[in-house]
């Protein structure tokens, strides 16, 4: 049984101009000790689906799913207090902007200690000892002296390390990292990614890495799930995804990378991600897809696992041996 098993998750937001669907029938599965990467452009619903799992969405959000199971527990029907005992303990999350996710009014030591007090009920002296251990684990030099430091006294990389220490405080089974290095410089990004992957291996945690950077995906992930406009369009092991992407969107995205370009002209994807009012009736990628045919405007089928569960009528990079489910209209 997978540690995290979400199927058919849909998240809609009430807006002044009607319902906006941010996540559309998405499945997410992640096993113990695995690194799953969710990749997609802005607005593809990658963060929202994780926030829905954590219960961090505002009341305007409408969440529906066939199944949201974490560690054998149904997270849909769980009450608020029981959820508080899981979130931050068994699953923890770190965010994109380390500078703004720490509370500026409290010291680093206090903020990490809070987790230890709430979830583990440690006393003051043990908390202090454990906090120092944690700071050491995430590679912060001179941890004793950092306990009384306020977040504004730390650099971006250091703040992210503190966030990681806080997330790891209660030994989570699942760590969700939402664009953890986007706001950081490349040399610091390399340090933080190395740290995350190292800790994941040591503790045998599951790690869900949300990112838009294909380079980060290639270097850290084991399995990759590609999101487009709220839908999961493809899921493959990292090596296969980069060698043989089956969805035209993944394929186009990979060839738009400057480092893969052969000429001066980059192969770009025309148009933009559909918004609230111009959502296509059939395949969401059809208006921008170079393989789209009439049938794609009516509906789209999901291919089987061998083809990366691609949500496409005409998947690309299909060898002769593979058989493609025929596209059905409507």
């Amino acid at each position: 049984m997978a540690l995290l098993d979400i199927s058919n998750l849909t998240v809609e937001f009430q807006t002044a101009s009607g319902m906006f669907r941010a996540v559309d029938n998405t499945d997410i599965r992640c096993d113990r000790g695995e690194i799953l990467s969710i990749v997609g452009e802005s607005g593809s619903g990658k963060s929202v689906s994780m926030l829905a799992l954590m219960g961090l969405l505002p009341w305007t959000a409408n969440i529906s799913a066939d199944k949201i199971e974490f560690d054998g527990r149904d997270m849909r029907s769980i009450d608020k207090n029981a959820r508080r005992k899981i979130v931050g303990k068994d699953m923890a999350m770190i965010f994109q902007e380390p500078m703004s996710s720490l509370n500026p009014c409290f010291t680093v030591g206090f903020q990490i200690g809070e987790v230890l007090k709430f979830h583990l009920g440690l006393d003051r002296a043990t908390r202090r000892k454990r906090t120092i251990e944690l700071l050491e684990q995430v590679g912060i030099p001179a941890p004793e002296s950092r306990l009384s430091v306020f977040p504004h006294q730390l650099s971006g990389g250091m703040s992210q390390r503190v966030m990681i220490a806080m997330a790891l405080a209660a030994d989570p089974k699942l760590l969700i990292a939402d664009e953890p290095t986007t706001a950081l410089d490349v040399t610091i990004q390399a340090q933080i990614l190395e740290l995350l992957v190292g800790l994941q291996k040591d503790k045998d945690m599951a790690l869900i890495l949300i990112t838009h950077d294909m380079g980060v995906v290639a270097e850290t992930a084991e399995r990759v799930q590609v999101q487009y406009a709220g839908q999961k369009v493809e899921e493959q092991a990292v090596g296969n995804l980069f060698d043989k992407p089956h969805h035209p969107y993944t394929s186009a995205l990979l060839s738009a990378l400057p480092e893969r370009a052969t000429g001066r002209e980059l192969p770009s994807i025309p148009g933009v991600v559909p918004g609230q009012f111009d959502r296509p009736p059939g395949c969401l990628f059809a208006p921008r897809c170079s393989f789209a045919q009439d049938v794609c405007n009516k509906g789209v089928v999901r291919q089987d696992e061998a083809l990366g569960a691609t949500l496409c009528n005409f998947p690309v990079n299909v060898g002769k041996a593979d058989t493609v489910k025929p596209a059905e209209a409507g």
Partner: peptide
Amino acid sequence: QALLSATPVADPHRKKKRIMLQGEL
């Protein structure tokens, strides 16, 4: 050299030979 090696490359098969820079700016 460190900057180039720290830049992630979108090729999962590439052998990583990374020069880790210690510390910060």
